[in-house]
Design a protein around this nucleic acid. Structure first.
Lengths: 110, 110
DNA sequence: GTAGATATATCATCACGCGAAATATCACGT
DNA sequence: ACGTGATATTTCGCGTGATGATATATCTAC
């Protein structure tokens, strides 16, 4: 749907936003992005996990393994204090970026 | 200023937009992006040229060498018919993409 | 005469999303 | 009992493309 390059850079912001609302596991985040965007935005599940691992290394999120009866083990991630700061910064960053690009490309002349 | 990943994917749209208004050469496009974004958005000049070459290979733009007295030779690029279509498509694509991301990340809670 | 802006070109490097494959459990239909 | 598909995580090689460094050349201004 969207150019692969366009999706890059929004991945972290997207994941951080998902985790701002609730503790979630990887697969859940993937499905959430897919359904909430009505199938228009779909990140590969492998990408999702690699970003999660990277963000955990960065100390933005922390995973917690949960084993429930009759369920495959899941790793639930939540934002750390640092992650919350990064989310805020990336959110503002995104808005400013979009503003500038929109300014530069002007209105579409359909 | 902005994450390098965020800039990826907006480069082509940006250049195509610049060339929609007038025939321009590479260095000029770079300066234009820099000044119009008040220095916030700055693409490497090397990146700019590599994107220009790629877009010319794709047939989206066409370069024309101009040699003026007392000036270094410049290559002026203009949009082709195909490039105009790509610009329109990428423009719509950008707007839709931004809409979806904004929907997913929600309003900032500053 | 040299420093800095203008202007283009090339190439190695690196980050990162992607595709593919492996592993494991549960639900459902037959 | 068996297969299929959804759920769930992991790993790794690949390809794309922005970046940084470097080279070259001309003009202006001090």
């Amino acid at each position: 749907m969207f150019s692969p390059e366009l999706k890059k850079g929004s991945m972290e912001l997207l994941i951080l936003s998902m985790l701002d609302q609730a503790e979630r596991h990887g697969y859940e985040i993937g499905k959430l992005i897919e359904t909430r965007s009505r199938g228009l935005l779909e990140f590969r599940i492998s990408t999702l996990y690699s970003v999660l691992y990277r963000m955990e290394d960065n100390g933005w999120i922390r995973g917690r393994w949960v084993e429930k009866e009759g369920q495959r083990s899941r790793c639930y991630y939540r934002l750390t204090a640092a992650g919350r700061k990064v989310l805020k910064a990336q959110h503002e960053n995104w808005r400013e970026f979009v503003g500038i690009i929109n300014e530069l490309i002007g209105p579409s002349h359909a």
